[in-house]
């Protein structure tokens, strides 16, 4: 069970959070211009990395804010947390 440092509330137990999958997958601005394959790529394809992964998390039982989190999926170490819209820190 992780401890997650919510950028708005501080360190809290993982049970207060929910994971929102891979981060930095931006919704296309002009979906109608995309081919089926390009749209499917946005919609379905996720990397599921073993190692350093950028993820979206939501403090769902707290401030309800979304933020990004850098996690090593092989050992669950958290290497950085940053707000939506911010540039990821160097790992």
């Amino acid at each position: 069970m992780f401890l997650i440092n919510c950028p708005y509330c501080g360190e809290r137990d993982q049970s207060e959070f929910s994971s929102g999958g891979e981060a930095h997958i931006e919704r296309p601005k002009q979906p109608t211009e995309l081919s089926d394959d390009e749209w499917a790529d946005f919609l379905f394809m996720r990397k599921n990395i073993k190692g350093i992964q950028f993820e979206r998390w939501n403090h769902s039982h707290g401030c309800r804010k979304w933020f990004n989190l850098i996690r090593d999926t092989s050992n669950d170490k958290i290497h950085g947390i940053y707000k939506m819209g911010e540039k990821p820190p160097k790992v």
Binding site: G20, E26, R27, R56, N58, S60, R64, K65, W66, M84, G85
Partner: peptide
């Protein structure tokens, strides 16, 4: 509510 919040905070801030 969660889904709408997600879009507001991440896609359409």
């Amino acid at each position: 509510l969660s889904k709408l919040e997600d879009y507001l905070q991440t896609e359409w801030p």
